[in-house]
Design a protein around this nucleic acid. Sequence first.
DNA 1: TGCATATAAAAGTCAAAGATAGTCAGGAAT
DNA 2: ATTCCTGACTATCTTTGACTTTTATATGCA
Lengths: 152, 152
Amino acid sequence: MPLLSDSIERFIKELMAQGNEVSLRRNELAQHFGCAPSQINYVLSTRFTLDSGYVIASRRGGGGYIRVMRIAGGGENLLRYMACSGIGEGISKARAHAMINRLLEEKTITLRESRLMKTAVDNCAQPVAGLQDGMRARILKSMFCVLLMESI
Amino acid sequence: MPLLSDSIERFIKELMAQGNEVSLRRNELAQHFGCAPSQINYVLSTRFTLDSGYVIASRRGGGGYIRVMRIAGGGENLLRYMACSGIGEGISKARAHAMINRLLEEKTITLRESRLMKTAVDNCAQPVAGLQDGMRARILKSMFCVLLMESI
DNA sequence: TGCATATAAAAGTCAAAGATAGTCAGGAAT
DNA sequence: ATTCCTGACTATCTTTGACTTTTATATGCA
């Protein structure tokens, strides 16, 4: 008897065979496999991670969905390496900036993009009052300011 | 089956295709979509917000109406407004996305930039193990993945 | 006529119900 | 020991309906 998680993983990957994206209803999928809905979350969070090249987006409420996207671009490129292997569970500010600079030198990103990325990693790493909303506000503001500087 | 709210949103935006303003009768519109009149208010208050560049004016009583107006103009002024007045000490995910979408529609930022910004605000607001380095790693990874992704 | 009041015709508000998805602790299986 | 799986609880998004407020118009009366 194959593992439930493996079956669900394979099923989702088959759905994605055409195209790099698929949209799921969590409850439907759970019913199809006769398991708890939260099992789907388990599979997604263990088998469709950023590190393994997937991005998940979802929405709750009526008309809710889970979208699984596969990151394109096979093998060799620098970005892929950086995204998948170059960062572990944690990274210093210095290393983050170094990686961003490297992408800029390779012309993989623009100057503006590099500045947006740097301000995001710089500002995300300090604690802030009003936890979630406060952090969001700080990062967003810092990015707006980057754009504003650029436009002057 | 597309979501009712989405259909109504699209319908209103199509009506506005010519010109930056449209006038509606709430009850007529509700009847057209076979829904409760208050549904229209819901759509207006979630999809036609100030952050996303709309202003609503209305009048009750006989001859009542709802007028939806699109605020024109992007660039430096919009950025300055958003950076200075648009965000307080905290901001929700929904508002942050609305503002970023608006910048995109006004062509003040590119699609790629909008995706980088969204992923930064989305990922900065969840707790993470290994506080500072962990947060930096997650944001950086998520931004690298945006760059890798062909389509969202 | 001119004013006050009633009636009708809008639109607004808000809380509750419905419809999804997410989280997390803990037991089960390997 | 680690990975798998579930269920209870939480969070978010949509839709509705009962009730309120506002405005225009009709009616009645001095």
